[in-house]
Design a protein around this nucleic acid. Structure first.
Lengths: 329, 329
DNA sequence: TTTTAGCACTCATATATTGACAATGCTAAC
DNA sequence: GTTAGCATTGTCAATATATGAGTGCTAAAA
């Protein structure tokens, strides 16, 4: 279908456009293609017929179409080595022993967002599969306690409880001991029902002011399961891209970033690193979403980058790949 | 200086402009002022001479000047009762027993940001004054531990530590016990030096693999003191205001919201609720910053709202006042 | 003395006009 | 298959033109 020169031309046009964000003219490619602008125009016309290029208006230079990007991503682009600077920044994260892997992902995506000026999203690691490992209560004053819950995956949650001071520290301690005995190992999303049907009767039996205490713990725990677990970083970055040069477009995008269901549409099913260009994604026709699933000791999640369609595909892939390699699968 | 009718006129113009964001014409006030547009024009001209009004161009309607807003805020505006709906939303926060007061402030400001469409900032509650109340370590696996630190003000911080599995759980337990004994009651910003000069020698004496363990704890703790403790919510909201209808202005503002020193310039020294209109604040000439200090069991901080100069001053004051009343001073 | 009607004036906004420029498409010659 | 040349097309910026909303001012009315 396309001959070598046409493919080369498409590549040059896309890479030029990625850099400059301006329509590419035939003339500008004369030198590197070693032929006259007319020749290039002829080839461009063919590429446009095929649907790989577009014009913003009849007499403008060419711009890659979604189909063009798609072809570029699928057949032309070579997986790029990660550049030294990017590598360096990310390495410090994964070599930092004091960061949990989970935090390392979030932190890396923050850095990638900064490096690329795209917006990064860390989604999921659905805490449903977390099991309670320890419940701890630290008294701050006679009626002021902090409840801390630790899960086997390393999540830590805490809430402050205010209890009437008719309740003794000893009663609280007793209750916590009972709770610990009964719910350790329980998946976080089953804690509520377990509290109600198994813990409540036991507490009622052994602890005097069981009603108040039970309610306090119940409401603390029920908060935990609700956690959304979405992290969107660098929303500002994407606004700096020249394609978002219009207040209403900016508002549209910003609203989408705050829209839960929009963000959830980012969730990835496939393995591998997947690219959704423009209308291929559900988020917005003017952006590319590139995303991949990760699984981390049983927890699954998605990391994604959102940028203009004119994205540095090879670089972004290298970056995401690096993260994948450093967390396994 | 100004007669009653002029004050009334200024009031009407400002309140109209706050609602509509459009220059106010003389004609539009005829009915309510019960006189002809010419009369109003005469009065407007006087108000403009005084500097309370401005025109966007020679033949436009009038717009309040900063001086005009200032006069309105200082002398005209009446402290408003909080409206029922606003009240209701905020009440649920402060009546929620499971929220620490600190979280309640953050949550309320989020809600206020939503109610008003301005951007809210919670700043400070400088954790320097927090004293360590408890250090807890929860083992997740043989080499994977979670360190949790609780302070007397109810802050909870945690980090994951990876230790070589040559270190036994027992050794970790011992170390934690020693740390607990030595640093409970230490202000968070003094923990580092205390660890080095008091804890390190003791651990060295009693614990075998003291080097590794010490380093792990040291790096975990040193992270805690760095916490910035700034919360900016609803940056999106302010972009929806018609005064920010220009991509470059939006970018400018968004950058300021991510600029630490800019946000820190918001810190309030005065008691009371203070209003800084346009050039009166350091943040941006096109916005009003309204802020107030709070102190919460010894911790001090600032809450602030940033909106267009055309702000609903009376409503915002009522909202901030409500928060103050519900946390004491 | 205050208010108002009336009119000239100003400026934003919208729309059209123009010329310069940067591309392209096409054709004919190489 | 390639290229030079030229007409064509559409952007962009500058300029013109009309419209309308608003003002300032003045002279007359209250």
């Amino acid at each position: 279908m396309m001959n070598d020169r046409q493919i080369e031309l498409l590549k040059l046009i896309i890479e030029d456009y990625i850099k400059t964000a301006r329509p590419v003219s035939s003339k500008s490619l004369c030198e590197i293609m070693n032929c006259s602008s007319a020749t290039i125009r002829n080839e461009m016309a063919i590429l446009e017929d095929y649907g790989y290029l577009e014009k913003t208006h009849t007499s403008s230079g060419r711009v890659p179409s979604e189909k063009g990007y798609r072809y570029y991503v699928d057949y032309i682009m070579k997986p790029k080595e990660m550049n030294g600077e990017d590598m360096l920044k990310l390495q410090t994260i994964f070599h930092n022993q004091s960061l949990a892997l989970n935090d390392a992902i979030i932190r890396s995506m923050e850095i990638i967002s900064e490096l690329t000026s795209y917006t990064s999203i860390v989604l999921g690691s659905s805490s449903k599969e977390n099991k309670v490992t320890k419940v701890e209560v630290v008294p701050l004053s006679d009626f002021h306690f902090i409840t801390i819950v630790v899960t086997d995956k390393g999540h830590v949650e805490h809430r402050t409880m205010n209890l009437p001071d008719t309740i003794s520290v000893e009663e609280v301690r007793q209750t916590v001991e009972l709770i610990n005995k009964l719910i350790i190992g329980t998946p976080i999303d089953e804690v509520s029902s377990k509290l109600e049907f198994e813990v409540k009767p036991v507490i009622a039996k052994y602890v005097k002011q069981h009603e108040v205490l039970y309610n306090a713990f119940y409401s603390a725990f029920s908060d935990f399961t609700k956690e959304a677990n979405i992290r969107v970083t660098g929303t500002k970055n994407i606004l700096m891209q020249p394609e978002f040069d219009d207040a209403s477009k900016i508002r549209e995008i910003m609203n989408k970033f705050e829209d839960q269901s929009m963000i959830n549409s980012i969730k990835e099913e496939d393995n591998g690193i997947n690219i959704y260009i423009g209308s291929e994604n559900e988020f917005d026709d003017d952006v590319t979403v590139i995303k991949t699933k990760y699984s981390l000791g049983g927890e699954e999640g998605t990391i994604a980058l959102i940028g203009p369609k004119r994205m540095e595909y090879d670089r972004v892939i290298a970056l995401l790949d690096y993260i994948k390699q450093n967390i396994g699968i």
